[in-house]
Simulated scan of single mutants.
Amino acid sequence: MTAAGTTGLVAANASGATGQDALGNRWYAAAPYLMPLDNDPPDPAAIMDATGLKAFQLAFVLAPNGGGCSPTWGGTAPVSSDTAVQSTISTIRAKGGDVSVSIGGYGGTKLGQACADAASTAAAYQQVITKYGLHAIDFDLEEPEYENTAAIKNEIGAARILQQNNPGLYVSVTTAGTVDGTGWFGKQMLLEAKSQGFIPNNFSIMPFDGGFSGAASQTAALTNFNSILRSTFGWDEATAYAHEGFSGMNGRSDTGEIFSQSDFQTVLDYATSHHMDRFTFWALNRDRQCSPPDNGGRTSGTCSSVAQSDWDFAKYSVKFAGVTPPTGTPTPTPTPTPVSCEPAWNSSTAYTGGSEVSYAQHNWKAKWWTQNEVPGASTWGPWQDEGAC
């Protein structure tokens, strides 16, 4: 039997796993995204204390940058030898919480692209489930992978295998949102799922970076997506909502859309009143105020670019899980020690991965070779924001 045939009971007792009891599915459905190795990762224990949050969606597992069908964090850190993410998970579980792991995302090479077929793709993901004793996993299928028919067939096939071989595994599938619900490639992904007989706990859309304007446009997209689910799978409205999810972006999106706390409350009210399965957002790394609050009209991977208190947006996830966030005054965040600025970024200089520069009073580290790409121009660009300097 291949690794893809390993059961969830074996996974829970594998080396590196803790045997952590599963939370209720509503917590996995509410888990916001957290990059544990990039974008100035916040302390999950502090977030849990301040908000009551119990679940985190860790991102992202990818194929190795150099090629191959084995899981890594961000394309660079092999899951097999990981201790850093394991430490984060242990911190969360020591406080009674748990994690889901998200695979895919916007950048990098996905395992569905690198592996030969669904079975080998599932085997790679099973290594992640076994390593961390997971009870939940998220397939984030978006550009450019979801334009690759063979890759999507591998991903959906892998998700189906994992669901079968890990009883009780909570599986979400997240894809791009449009004002019409989802686009052509998203619809093709749904048809692939139907053809393989695969039904996850939810299909979630990301209604941002697509000409959205506040909560009204997002709830309209969710209504339209419900119609797509109904027509694709033959479900009635209530069944479609029970398999539908929302994945938002707090604050300023990559394309300059603004989603405030009041927008999140409106979408939360919509999600709960329609009995949707999932409500999450990208990302906890951004759930804190920039300096200045609007970040000079720029999007950041480490703050929201809107006025807020730390972890304002996480509290909406807590509410979706059915818990009332703490109302006490949180302990003030200590003033950080000033950090000196690296040499200024130069548009004509070629930078290799690991190079550090400063731009707009922030330090930045190159994720890969780059030239004439402005730091901070895109969350998914070549530059990792290392905070103010």
Rank of each mutant, 00 (worst) to 15 (best):
T2S: 10
T6C: 11
T6H: 09
T6E: 13
G8F: 00
G8P: 01
L9A: 15
A11C: 15
A11N: 14
N13W: 12
G16L: 04
A17K: 09
G24N: 03
G24H: 03
Y28M: 06
P32A: 14
L34D: 10
D38A: 15
N39Q: 09
P41C: 08
D43F: 05
P44F: 12
A45V: 15
A46Y: 00
G52E: 01
L53N: 03
A63F: 02
P64K: 08
G67R: 00
G67P: 08
C69Y: 01
S70R: 06
P71L: 07
G74V: 05
G74A: 11
P78M: 02
P78L: 01
V79D: 04
S80K: 03
T83R: 00
S87T: 02
S87Y: 00
T88G: 00
S90W: 05
V99N: 04
S102L: 02
S102Q: 09
G105M: 10
G107V: 15
G108W: 01
T109I: 12
L111F: 07
G112K: 01
Q113T: 04
A119V: 11
A119C: 03
A124I: 12
Y125W: 10
Q126R: 08
A136P: 05
L141I: 10
E142V: 11
A150Q: 15
I152H: 05
K153E: 12
E155T: 14
I156H: 08
I161Y: 00
L162H: 05
G168W: 02
Y170Q: 13
T178K: 04
K187F: 14
M189T: 10
L191S: 08
Q196F: 04
I199P: 02
P200E: 01
N202D: 07
S204R: 04
S204E: 13
I205L: 10
I205Q: 03
I205T: 07
I205C: 09
F208R: 06
G210I: 13
G214Q: 13
S217K: 06
Q218T: 06
T219Y: 02
A221Q: 06
S227K: 15
L229M: 07
L229G: 06
G234E: 14
G248T: 08
M249Q: 13
N250M: 14
N250H: 08
G251A: 09
S253I: 01
S253W: 09
I258C: 13
F259A: 08
S262V: 10
F264K: 11
F264V: 12
F264N: 10
Q265S: 11
L268R: 00
L268Y: 03
S273G: 05
F279N: 00
F281A: 08
A283E: 08
L284V: 14
L284Q: 11
Q289A: 11
D294Q: 04
D294W: 10
T299Y: 02
S300Q: 05
T302R: 12
C303N: 11
F313K: 00
S317P: 11
V323I: 09
T327D: 14
G328N: 14
G328K: 03
T331G: 02
T331K: 04
T331L: 10
T333I: 10
P334H: 02
P336C: 07
V339W: 01
S340M: 14
C341W: 03
A344G: 09
S348L: 15
S348I: 14
T349D: 02
A350H: 11
Y351D: 11
Y351Q: 13
G354S: 13
Q361E: 13
W364R: 14
A366H: 14
W368R: 07
W368E: 09
T370N: 15
N372Y: 06
P375Y: 08
T379Y: 07
W380R: 09
W380G: 13
C389L: 06
